[in-house]
Design a binder for these strands. Sequence first.
DNA 1: GCGTCCAGGTCTACC
DNA 2: GGTAGACCTGGACGC
Length: 316
Amino acid sequence: MFTEKHHAEFNAIPPYSFELTVHKPAGWSWSTPNEIFENGVLWTTARLNSCLYGLRLRAGGNSRKPTVICTFFSRTPMHTQEKESVTSTVKRALGLEEDLSEFYAMAKKDNILRQTVEDLFGMRTLDWPDLFPALILAVTLQMASMKRSNQMMDLLIENFGEKVSFDGKTIAHWPSPKRIAEATVKDLADKAKLGYRAKNLNSIAKTLCEGFPSADNLSRMESDEAKKQLMTLRGIGIYSAEIVNPGPGFPLDVWSAKIFSILFLAKEPDSPRDAIPELKRIAEERWGKWRGDAFVYVLNDLPRISKRIGFDLTRF
DNA sequence: GCGTCCAGGTCTACC
DNA sequence: GGTAGACCTGGACGC
């Protein structure tokens, strides 16, 4: 039984939009696809240091002094050190201490971003509480339509995940690396329809169980070093590493390559895959170290950008 | 109903 | 070091 074990209020560097950060317009979840966002409150689950927690999060403070109020639910009593550790992970994943002022100053001079940063004022981009779910997402996105990726993720959670009941809610959470490492490749392929990805995910899970830097550790590394570490995992290439550890990366795939080709070059690419290196170069030249943030802002504002440029970017 | 093609990449063998 | 081809499989599409 998960009961309330720890309660805290965290300060955020303004501007900070709790809602846009945890409940993104493009539909990306903060920790698990099954989390519940109602009336400004997020009920979600996270596996931190191999322990599962229920979390209830909501905005506090005001626009000049924003805060996030967080309640942790756990099976067992939480020790002081455990409280400090999970608190620090949650603060990082909420982007509370991220200062957007330099990004916004750059964006105000950029035709594509100027209005977008106003549309999504105060949104933090993407920082995973836990590493394995991010790797599952990256692997299931490969060579599949969004519908099929969602099917694989849903089946993984249904067949190998865990349910957490707390605060009157029940939320199904991602499987642990241990559970996927212990499953057979055949079982993963059959039950989660992973196809060739089953072998990769099983290998990744085993590597994580043997010892691999956590999401917290990776976030403290230089971006290139973190990317290098991630790319040692089987089935994780440049795109997947940048999805998992966004930083200043620009994780273009054939879908987003079509969108950025329209925005940068005003044309659809003949071959989106072949256009990726050139589009990445343009993004780096145009947005520099802020290209990762620009990437997330643009992809979360497609309906409004489409209206402004008179081209439907949501049809890709 | 059936065949074909392709999808929000990565790895490997071969040059 | 650069690159063609293989990789699972569900769903869309044409016939």
